[in-house]
Design a protein around this nucleic acid. Structure first.
Lengths: 253, 253
DNA sequence: CATATAACGTTGTCTGACAGTGTGACATCC
DNA sequence: GGATGTCACACTGTCAGACAACGTTATATG
């Protein structure tokens, strides 16, 4: 029998009801992140609204969220489509990521906050590399980077990181060669993990800078990389979502 | 008579039609930035739509943009209101700003891009301080910081900075003491400007860190500051917009 | 073959509607 | 008196339907 006294209430958390618009935006964002909705893919408002069983206005509100996140592009009269990244975007995205992650590293090291989550993300990444599927490696890679930002405790940095993760994914998916990851990334990630654990700020920052520069360079220049370390995603590798593949089929080119 | 050859067209820029939603979002954002719309102020959709002479759906789409920018808050069933910042937000906002501006400083120095705009912004700031009105100083201060990011040439960093400027402004406006600025900020800004011009990256980064930490500390602890350097905004100082003051009056508490 | 025209599909925007929910005033009860 | 219950009002959440403006594609025309 629960205690009647208000001050002695058991541990109750604030009820968070997410709005419909949140849910819609999440679904579309996830579809993009998982590759079900390809860069350049345009959104047919009527059909998409039907598919999600929401009204057109609700869908449009959600789309505005994604537009302001830079995940989708909007042109008056032509509607909204998944942003297609160009080579100009590569350095830009990684500049933002370096800004976010460097700051997060500084906060984590200086505040001495717990970093168990980073270790765990690294372990997951190692497993994914053994598994050797592009999608799993890509997800684990980004999750590792996100774990650092999450440990900083800054909600804003964390939110920005989530958006940047989608941008990063869009960079890969916009690559004409198709979605690829390099499985040699584990070295630098271990080094980053160690530097943070050791509280070595300059070294950690240097690694962050190196990782970003390296990733950007590889996207610019595909040929410098020995084939051996590349894992390419085949079509079956992507998280297939019947709903969205159905959508993709009914959409115009 | 214009040349008929397409390749010989005079200098023409791509026509950018901004969507209605952009315009609505800009108006509301400006109203917040200028202080016409105070933190905590809720938006009555029907009345606001009437005031802007747009439909409720269009207004709602625009509001979603501002929600995802973190400028407004949304709760299901209770609508949307201007975000009210708390002390928890102070460090968070400045952590993001340090991330952005430090990265921008690095890019500007390493790339050797032109920095005339920064000098100009500093000059404007000096003028504003002579003028000694809180609003002018606050605007010039933020514009100086933005000029650095703009010089980096990164559109994403620049966009993030624009949002962070509104966040910073909301921090001041949410302060129970009212909107205040310190006119002693010119010293550090001159130093930052010089460091960038001299290409002294470590020093520039140190100044950025110091500016952010100082600003955050002053918002946390009002009393450490001698009154002499504080400029307080009186009511007439804010950019009065008949349209929005009318709106404010008709809105519920 | 390039250009004009027509037909179609989509988006942009609005009106109107109604249920669900939040809010404040008021009455009620211990 | 303070807490609780009740009710009316205001507002948001969501939808359907409509229509003009715009884009795009196919078709006709020079």
């Amino acid at each position: 029998m629960p205690s009647p006294a208000t001050s002695e209430l058991p541990v109750l958390r604030k009820v968070i009801r997410s709005s419909t618009i949140d849910l819609i935006a999440d679904q579309i964002r996830n579809a993009i992140y998982s590759g079900s909705l390809a860069p350049g893919q345009s959104i047919n408002e009527v059909r998409t609204a039907e598919l999600l069983v929401v009204s057109r206005p609700s869908l449009r509100e959600a789309l505005q969220r994604l537009v302001s996140e830079g995940v989708m592009t909007h042109a008056p009269g032509r509607g909204v489509w998944v942003k297609r990244m160009t080579s100009d975007d590569i350095d830009d995205v990684y500049a933002v990521r370096e800004a976010i992650e460097a700051q997060a590293v500084k906060i984590v090291i200086r505040s001495g906050k717990p970093i168990a989550r980073i270790h765990q993300a690294l372990a997951t990444l190692e497993l994914a590399i053994e598994e050797n599927t592009a999608r799993a490696i890509g997800d684990a890679d980004l999750d590792f980077h996100h774990s650092i930002v999450a440990c900083s405790g800054s909600v804003r940095l964390s939110d920005l990181m989530k958006v940047s993760m989608v941008h990063t994914r869009l960079l890969s998916l916009s690559d004409p060669r198709g979605y690829e990851v390099r499985c040699d990334l584990i070295e630098t990630h271990r080094e980053l993990n160690e530097s943070i654990a050791a509280g070595n700020e300059p070294r950690a920052l240097a690694v962050v800078g190196r990782v970003m520069a390296g990733a950007a360079a590889r996207l610019h220049n595909p040929l410098t990389e020995p084939e051996a370390v590349i894992v390419r995603a085949d079509d079956q590798d992507k998280l297939v979502d019947d709903q969205w593949s159905q959508l993709r089929d009914t959409m115009r080119a």
